[in-house]
């Protein structure tokens, strides 16, 4: 975090104190003391960036399921197209996140919730990364998935996708309507549990099958990759829940 802040035109505006802790007060005078009307306009811009970031997350969640369906159906070209789209969204989401973080620090906005918001954005970004990684794994390894396992993988991806959708709703509620956050957090946890059940069932079936151990391990790893999306969504939602409690006291 501190590393990324000390780059570009921020260099020299934040100082490391003797013990290596980043001093959060900007020493340069850009931002901060600008006219109030400007502050509101810039706030609106920042809001829209956060919204866009969450839109991307939601879209990545949906693409995840569709791409995997394409792969299982043997439509590799469509799978690759969707994977490319996820990659683009991931890059843009990264940019958006960095811009939001930078602006929150430069203008010392939401001083009390800044740490929570930054953590939320970074962890949510990780959800996108997990999707990207899982799809990349499929693309590289091109696993031979036995027909009877296809539905299980699809179900797993579906639950992961649902968990991501609920997480995005929860994150939006965190910014506007904290009282609704627990509902979404609860739903994320529900889909994650369902995904875990499916993952376990899938793995048991894989290892009961009469195939090479190497294939068993490859298919088992594939289960773990797909399941990790729901797991990460749950981790973020737990953090969201704590941040919400912090905001309400």
């Amino acid at each position: 975090m501190a590393e990324s802040l000390l780059t570009g035109n921020l260099m020299g505006c934040y100082e490391m104190s003797g013990n290596g802790v980043l001093d959060e007060t900007p020493k340069c005078s850009f931002g901060g003391e600008r006219p109030m009307t400007n502050l509101f306009a810039r706030t609106k811009l920042l809001e829209s960036k956060i919204d866009e970031f969450l839109n991307h997350t939601s879209e990545v969640g949906l693409l995840f399921r569709e791409a995997l369906k394409n792969f299982l159906d043997g439509r590799v070209a469509e799978f690759e197209e969707r994977r490319g789209k996820v990659s683009d969204l991931e890059n843009h989401a990264d940019e958006l996140r960095r811009e939001v973080e930078r602006q929150l620090y430069i203008e010392t906005l939401i001083p009390e919730s800044r740490g929570d918001v930054l953590g939320l954005l970074e962890q949510t970004d990780d959800v996108i990364n997990r999707v990207k990684l899982a799809l990349m794994q499929v693309s590289v390894e091109n696993p031979q998935i036995p027909a009877e396992l296809g539905d299980g993988y699809l179900e797993l991806a579906d639950y992961g996708s649902r968990a991501v959708q609920e997480l995005v709703m929860g994150a939006r509620a965190f910014f506007r309507n904290t009282s609704a956050v627990p509902d979404y957090v609860h739903k994320v946890a529900f889909w994650e549990k369902e995904a875990d059940k499916v993952a376990e069932r899938l793995k048991r079936r894989i290892f009961e099958m009469d195939i090479d151990l190497s294939q068993k391990i490859q298919l088992g790893n594939f289960v773990m990759h797909v399941d990790s999306v729901a797991d990460q969504a749950e981790d973020v939602s737990e953090r969201l829940s704590i941040s919400t409690i912090k905001r309400s006291i």
């Binding site: 502050l39 906005l109 919730s113 918001v117």
Partner: peptide, 17 residues
């Protein structure tokens, strides 16, 4: 604040002003 459903950032800007 509960009723207005204001964005955290807008709330922050308003509070400052």
């Amino acid at each position: 604040t509960v009723r207005s459903r204001m964005h955290l950032l807008a709330e922050d800007a308003l509070t400052r002003a």
